[in-house]
Structures are given as structure tokens and as C-alpha cells.
Design a protein around this nucleic acid. Structure first.
Lengths: 223, 223
DNA sequence: GTCTATACGGCGATAGAC
DNA sequence: GTCTATCGCCGTATAGAC
């Protein structure tokens, strides 16, 4: 079983190395050789375990997607329960989407941090964004939007989808940790302080969604 | 002068091809050979005109950055003039940031569409985001934020910077045109309808910023 | 000067020998 | 499971055509 552990160790080491490097340089910016080197294994082992490079990429994405989805759904259902029989507050729903990213102390873990940056890369990539994000995250997101609609009755679906799009753009840009806002703000804001970033983004996004109610009521009033 | 045009033609053809391909596949996903083929020129010509691959990338970014910055600053100053001596409305300032992207009919031009997608790639890339975006766009953005502050007196700088970050994330994700929202919304929303996307994003972002006033006043009141 | 054809050294993914 | 070999494509330098 020591041997079996070691096998698993190497598999994990490859996934970890791939995750970290793909997050930093994107799919094409990383070679299997670099991954193998980082993981301390032979060049061919990645191919042995995962098949071609593309499949390794999928494996990296998949590993944490399921965990993250379940955490988020848990947090969301808890929020619904807490507010029942009323619909939850918009901000509480948004929090349920953000907090699983931070609260389980995985923000410290470089693995999760890399994973978030990788998702940011995938999300805004014309090559992967449309298909992979859909594949891994859409069911969770639909549940999320359904709850949000109970808190925002009368808001058109189109607004809700574009609202989610804004949320997603803001969140993934923050988690890409490009160091951009550090420069822009002369180090007042820090790219790598994800909890701080989330505090501000949650407020901003909740305001964006909440305003849709006012807008849709105004529209109705003029009819 | 026909000869001179031809020189410019090939130079431009290389820039156009590079722009389009970099936007779709990222820096590392594109080879100089692919660019040359798309442009209909010899492999070595890109190197002759622009030097190494990396310098060609910069040249592509720079070409339209200056134009875009000047358009945005124009729109912003016009907004300021219109409202004077009062500060402009938040939503009008946001519009001044978005409309230059759309209004000059360049949305139709595939060149500009590619450029926007390329900016989206650069913006969320840990490799380029921090430095290149800063280099090309920060002065324009600072002017923009300064005007926004006149419309939002008392809002802390940190909120303003994170607000801009949210704006930037939402906007660049939309302009990345990943097709993601088409899937998510079952084609109710279209990735390639940029004017429509902007309408929704402007409202969302304006609400996010406007809410900061209420928040900062609430904070002040409790002191 | 502008541009093309070609050549070079290096490194890519991965298949097959071990 | 590991190591090596292979073949193709990479960015770039150069030589010379127009």
C-alpha cells in the first residue's frame, strides 16, 4: 500500500503542477515537460496517467469543480432554509456564491488559489469559455439563478443572465490575480487579498441585482 | 506610391492577422507561421517588420489603444461639459466609457471586435494583465475615476477602485465573446450582440457605483 | 528598403521499447 | 511504470531577388 500511495502521490503531484502552471500561463503556455519537472516525475508519466495533454487539462478542471459545486449548493440551500418561508435577501444569496470560495480556509492553500486563477483563464477564453464552463458549472448556476429570482420577482430573465455575467466577470477577474488593481490603486487594493476583494465585489454585485427590481417596476409603471 | 501602399498593406495585414489570431488563441496558442499564412505573406516578414514575436504582440495592442483612449477621453469630457457646473450623473459617466466601443460603427469591423477580445485576454491574464493594461490604459482610467468621484463624493477610494475592477471584469468578459452566456441562457442572450450586452452592463455597473453613496452615508451615520 | 525562400538549432507531444 | 527515440513544428537568422 506504500506503493499504491506513491502512485497516487505522483498522480496528484502531476495534477498539482499542471494546475499551478496552467493557471499562470494558460494551456498553450505550458509544456508537459515543464509540468513533469515541477512535479518531479518523468515526462511520459502524465501521458500514462491522463492521456494526451488536453485530457490532463480536463482532469485538472474536473478535480475541484465537483467539490466547489457541492459547497456552493450547500451554502445556497442553507440560505434558503434560513429565510424560509420568505425568499432570502439578494446579498445573502450572493454571499452564498462567494463564501464557499473563502471560508473553508482553502484560500490559504495554493492549490485552490491556482484553481481559481485557472477558472478565470478558462472563463474568459474564447477557446474554452463557452464549452467548459457550461459543462462544469451550469447546473449549479441555474439553481443559483432560480433562488435569486425568488428574491427579485418580476425581473426579466435577460437581466438576470446578464447580471450573472457581470458577477462572473468581476469575480473571475479578481481571482485571476493579475496584480492589475495593485498598480492602478497604487497598492491601496491588493490582488492577492481575495477575502477583501470579495467583500467589495459582493456589495457591488448585490447592488447591481437589487437595482433591477426598481428598473423593472419603473418599466411596468410606464405601461 | 502604389509601392508604399503595398508596404503598408502587408504590415497592416500582419497586424490584422496577428490581432485576430491572438484574440482567439492567446499569445502562446499562435505561431508566427499561422499569422503569416493568414496574412498571406512570408514567414519571415513579421520578424522583419516587428522583430521578435513578443514585440509584434505589443505592436498589435498599441495600434488601437491610443485611438480608443482618445475616443474615451473625448466622450468623457463632453459628458463633463454637458453637466457643468454640476457633476455628471453616474450612469452618464459609465456610458462615456462604454459608448466609444460601440458608437463609431466599429463594432461591425472584425478588427475592432478582435481587438476587444484580445484586450479581454490580456486583462485577465496573470502574465500580461498587471503590466500591459497598466501601461496602455491607466492614465485614461485615472481620469475616468476622477470624474466618477465628483459624482460620488465621500465614497472611499478603495471602493472606487474595486468598483472599476468589477466594471472591467464584466466588460472584458462580455467582449471576450466566449459564447458562454448563449449556452447559459439557452440563446436568450447573445455573446456577439455587444450593444445589447453593453446596455445591460451599463445599468448593472451604474447601480453598483451608485449604491456606494448610500453605503458610505450609512457608515458615516453610525459613527 | 521590402520581401521571399530556405536553413538551423531547439524543443514539442507522444509512441514504443524496455 | 520508466526511459528513449522520433518526427514535426517552433522562432529566428540569413542570403539574395526585386
Amino acid at each position: 500500500m506504500a506503493a499504491e500511495n506513491k502512485k497516487q502521490d505522483k498522480r496528484e503531484a502531476i495534477l498539482n503542477a499542471a494546475e499551478s502552471l496552467f493557471a499562470k500561463h494558460g494551456y498553450d503556455g505550458v509544456t508537459l515537460r515543464a509540468i513533469a519537472k515541477e512535479a518531479g516525475v518523468d515526462v511520459a508519466l502524465a501521458n500514462y496517467h491522463f492521456g494526451p495533454k488536453r485530457d490532463l487539462f480536463d482532469a485538472v478542471l474536473l478535480r475541484r469543480a465537483q467539490i466547489l459545486n457541492s459547497w456552493r449548493l450547500e451554502a445556497l440551500e442553507a440560505t434558503v432554509q434560513n429565510a424560509a418561508p420568505n425568499p432570502p435577501q439578494v446579498k445573502d444569496i450572493i454571499r452564498a456564491y462567494f463564501e464557499p470560495l473563502l471560508k473553508r480556509s482553502q484560500v490559504q492553500e495554493p492549490g485552490w488559489k491556482s484553481y481559481y486563477a485557472l477558472i478565470a483563464y478558462v472563463n474568459s477564453s474564447p477557446e474554452w469559455g463557452g464549452t467548459l464552463m457550461t459543462q462544469f458549472f451550469d447546473p449549479m448556476i441555474h439553481r443559483f439563478l432560480a433562488v435569486l429570482k425568488t428574491a427579485l420577482p418580476g425581473v426579466p430573465d435577460k437581466s438576470m443572465y446578464w447580471g450573472y455575467h457581470c458577477l462572473s466577470g468581476a469575480l473571475t477577474l479578481a481571482f485571476a490575480q493579475t496584480g492589475r488593481i495593485d498598480h492602478l490603486s497604487d497598492d491601496l487594493c491588493k490582488s492577492d487579498d481575495l477575502p477583501d476583494a470579495c467583500d467589495y465585489i459582493v456589495d457591488f454585485v448585490a447592488a447591481g441585482f437589487s437595482d433591477m427590481i426598481a428598473a423593472s417596476q419603473k418599466e411596468t409603471a410606464t405601461l
